[in-house]
Amino acid sequence: MAKVMIVDDSPFSRNIIADALEEAGFEVVSQAGCLEEALEEYSRTRPDVITMDMVMPGADGLECVRALRLENPEVKVVVVSSMKDDELIKEAKKLHVAGYVQKPVDSVELVAAVRAAVAPDEVFGELDNLYMEVFQDAFSSGIAMVAKTAAEFNSQEASDLKYTSLGVAVVIGIVGRYSGRMILDLSLETATALTKVALRREPKNKDEVLAMVAEFANIISGNACSVLNKKCKEVRLRVTPPSIFYGGTPEITTPNINKKAIFAETAYGTMYLNVGFKRGAEAWT
């Protein structure tokens, strides 16, 4: 298991952090209360990751990170601080710290951040294993809620990267530790039928249909990302406003990301859900 050093001027905070990490199986190899101790303990114990307080007497956390980087430019740091304002976040991002946890420390969040710092690919693997099932659940609930109908799902082979739109494609961007996007695609006929059921009347025009489909996609992506944030603490996903391609039958693709897709066969026609995330940790938020 990974070795951790804790830098914090408060012995109380150090104990809390150490307990949480040791309980999760990390080995806390050293603790330091100031810059000088941090440098000394770092060279003595060579930890894999360091938790760093921001506000300390003497040199602050940012100065400590800079000093430690002179020892090892690759050193991985998770900030654990009661302060989390825009200025500190900006400075911490400039120093490419691996995570930022606010005090009072939530042990689950802390452990997730340290784990992600040590093995970012492991967190991606967890997300990658989970996300399509979660999106399918949200898709299924969404269809049941809006269309009052069940759907039959078929997975699409991951090898088929590109696809041709059925006519209406709602694209929702995803940001967080990993960035990605969700596309919900269906024909205008299916979209119109769905809108009619949801509104219990004929839609007035195409704009109303597009707005309904956008909201439908918004619900699916929002619900799925909330569930993923609970199951996979460090990903912190958020969605961006929906945009809708419509009119022709264009080809749609997102190069260089891992994608998965499912088809839902419903009483109103086929719907297609394509979700993908980019490997490689983006900046934490």
């Binding site: 825009d86 961007g173 960035s179 406003p241 945009s243 391609f245 022709g248 080809e251 980019k278």
Partner: peptide, 22 residues
């Protein structure tokens, strides 16, 4: 002072297509 995060890009190509934004 405006903090933003960006999603991965989605690429679309084809004729007679429009995009409706929010």
């Amino acid at each position: 002072g405006i903090n933003t995060d960006i999603s991965t890009p989605t690429l679309m190509f084809g004729n007679d297509v429009s995009l409706k934004v929010s």
